[in-house]
Amino acid sequence: MTKENKFKDDFKDFINSKEVAPRNISHSIIDRVKADLNPNKQLVFVKLLSLQLLTGLITMLFCPQFKMSLTNNHDLFHYFHHNFGEHICMMICGAIFLGSGAIVASYTLDLEELRVIKKSKGLYTLAISGLSLGVFLIFGAKLYLDLTLLWVLGASLAATVMLAFNYFLRRKFLLLA
């Protein structure tokens, strides 16, 4: 019998075999998969928030506000400000702040956790941008309604798009691997 035939027979035997597995094992497998596919939403939010806090702090090192800048080189900020104006600059600022956190989260969190964020349709990112504004207020930032709204818009949009795009990339990469 050739190797190929052996496999064929083995596969045929597999197809035709029938014996129900013990119920306790079945329950344990199904429960484990169910838990894995449905991660705790609060925990996912806390994870995303923690990652955002870490990445946000790093972006602050390049930000002219809050006097946290390491380089004190604000050329990029001035470039955006002069070329696009204050409003677009605010959107870019928000996009960099939350977008960078979203990229880090996209490759740190599980795919199922990313799916939970994706399913929230921007609610998680909106909540995090709101919380971030609260923290900025505590640190003495002056917030103006129109600029704040643009910052939130830029931040939420960038984070949502980055999460969705990187989720898609990870799925594609897994299929190709």
Binding site: V20, V33, L37
Partner: peptide
């Protein structure tokens, strides 16, 4: 896409094949 019910159906459809195959 994260539907655990789909896994459940697949599992119940094929668990007996896997189990019997391994038992032999």
């Amino acid at each position: 896409d994260g539907d655990h019910k789909a896994f459940e159906v697949l599992y119940l459809r094929h668990e007996s094949k896997v189990y019997a195959y391994l038992r032999k």
